[in-house]
Structure formats: structure tokens, C-alpha cells
Design a protein around this nucleic acid. Structure first.
Lengths: 145, 145
DNA sequence: CATAATTATTTGATATATCAAATAATAATT
DNA sequence: AATTATTATTTGATATATCAAATAATTATG
């Protein structure tokens, strides 16, 4: 395949990067907790940073579809990492919280996640990262308007 | 959720961007050809730029797993967009080519893809893109070593 | 207050991702 | 040449993505 200008290849390159990163994460996570996926790990971390979210709030934070969240949480609940309680004020909602097992998993995951980021971003300067962040935000904005 | 430094959020932002972009693509593609997915469209374009690829070659070009390629091609073949022929020199291989219907679809897709890219990259300068490309390549490299 | 509109979650159907194992063909080795 | 190793693709199992429709609860409106 021939790529003439960076314009024609950038978005393709973003896909390449995210896949490479996810593969790295999956590999390192599997070494400490084999039954947690990358997405499930991310959800645990997000829940940890916020106390008790509804599924919609959670979905928006991790850029996932509500249907996906329902299914992912089901698996996580079956494995005992989280629990769901129906909100007493609004019975449509369920608030998602982390179990003791989930907290233990987070403790194991945290250093891995730090390592993954460090590995992925090795040799990249702070201004470079800020620039990357900025450009990506612009693209996201362009796509959602 | 709290993000302190860009370092802790960049890879999360990449996910956000790629999802926003794929959503835009899906929407615009569906308007001209409802039964082609973003991935199937990409595969058609890649096949168009190269004449007759094996599945492994194709998989590597689109950063997909061989198993995924098998299944995606099956659907595309069922819908008549591509055809697979077993390689006479090496009967393990199959060479994938585009049908007339596939070529017609490409003609319809091409302007959409151009539009999608233009939309996504609106207001982003050439040096900015080159920088983005460069940083992403570094990250990919870091993740695959 | 009853009905309609909206909201949060679930379920069904289909597409894609990933790993591991299975198949089948080719290449390398003894 | 027979056996072994490697390669290309497929299949099975499970996870996630996405849209549409279904549920169930809440809010708004006449």
C-alpha cells in the first residue's frame, strides 16, 4: 500500500498504535491476573477513582456503549470483582461498586498500569505529549460535531 | 475522574479519538452502502491498492488477527464483494480479489473516505500531523519491543 | 390524576478481537 | 523417501462493539 501524505495515513496509524498498546497491556495484565481483560481492568480503575457510579456514568467515562457495559459488568460481577445495587431513589439505576476482591485486584494492577504507560511513552518528551493530546482532542472534536 | 498530567491520560485519549472517528465513518458509510462495515470498507480499499493479496498479507496491512480476517472475508464473500481463490502454487494460501460489485462499492466509498478524513483533520496543520504521526509511531515502537 | 414522554438498563442480533487448538499443505531433516 | 517442523488458514470459545427494540421506572403534560 502506498501512502502519499501523512494526511492519508494518520487515522490508520492511530489504529495501529492503539492495537499495539492494548496488546502490551493485555500481556502484562495476564501475567498478574489472568482472568481480567484490559477493559475490565480499566473499569476497575475508573470505579476506584470515583465512588459508586451508575452504568451510564461509567459508560461515558470509558467511552463504551451502555449495552457493552451491561455485559462487561455481568462478567465482572460473576467473577466477584464488582457488585451492583439498585438505587433506592431511582429504581432504574444501579450503582456499581468494587468488592474486596476487586480492590485487591486494583492493588495488583496499579503498578502494571504504571509500567505499561511508562513503556509506551518511553523517550517521548512532555511537550510532545501535550502536543499529541492537543491534536487528538481536535480530531475527536471534529468527529463529534 | 482526575487526570494530573498528560502522561496519565494520553493513551486513554487515543481510544477516545479512534472511537469518535470510527463512529463518524460508520455513519457516513451507512448512508451510501448500508451493508458494509468500516472494517469491510477498509479491507476493500486495501485490496484495491494491491492486486490479489493472501489473507496473511491482508491481515498485516489492516492490523488484524488472521482469525478475524477469515471471518470478515467470509461475510464479504457471502455479500459478493470479494472472492477467494486457492493459490495453485501453494494450496494453503488463498488469494483474495475484488469482484465487480466490490469495485462498484469502492467507487462509492472513495469520496466518503476522503470526506471522513477531511472532516476529522479539519483545522489541523501539516506540521501538526507530521508530529502526530511521529509520536504515534514512537509509541507503537515502544509497545512492540 | 391519567397519559405521554423520557430515562436507565437489558436483551437480541450481528460484527469484530483474541487465544488456542485443529487442519492441511509445504519445507526441512535425517 | 519418511518423518518432523513450519506455514496458512480455519474453527471453537469467549469478550467486546453497535444498533434496535424491549422493559421498567420516573418525569412532564394536558
Amino acid at each position: 500500500m502506498t501512502f502519499d501524505t501523512p494526511t492519508s495515513t494518520i487515522l490508520y496509524t492511530i489504529e495501529e498504535t492503539i492495537k499495539a498498546y492494548r496488546k502490551l497491556c493485555a500481556k502484562n495484565i495476564a501475567e498478574v491476573i489472568p482472568d481480567i481483560t484490559v477493559d475490565q481492568g480499566l473499569i476497575l480503575i475508573i470505579l476506584h477513582k470515583n465512588n459508586s457510579l451508575t452504568q451510564m456514568e461509567l459508560a461515558n467515562l470509558v467511552f463504551k456503549d451502555y449495552a457493552s457495559i451491561t455485559r462487561i459488568l455481568k462478567l465482572m460481577e460473576d467473577k466477584g470483582y464488582i457488585s451492583k445495587k439498585i438505587d433506592t431513589k431511582d429504581k432504574r439505576r444501579s450503582s456499581v461498586t468494587i468488592t474486596a476482591k476487586g480492590e485487591k485486584a486494583i492493588a495488583q494492577l496499579t503498578p502494571i498500569i504504571v509500567l505499561n504507560r511508562k513503556t509506551a511513552l518511553q523517550g517521548i518528551t512532555e511537550p510532545e505529549l501535550i502536543q499529541l493530546f492537543d491534536t487528538l482532542k481536535k480530531i475527536t472534536q471534529n468527529c463529534t460535531n
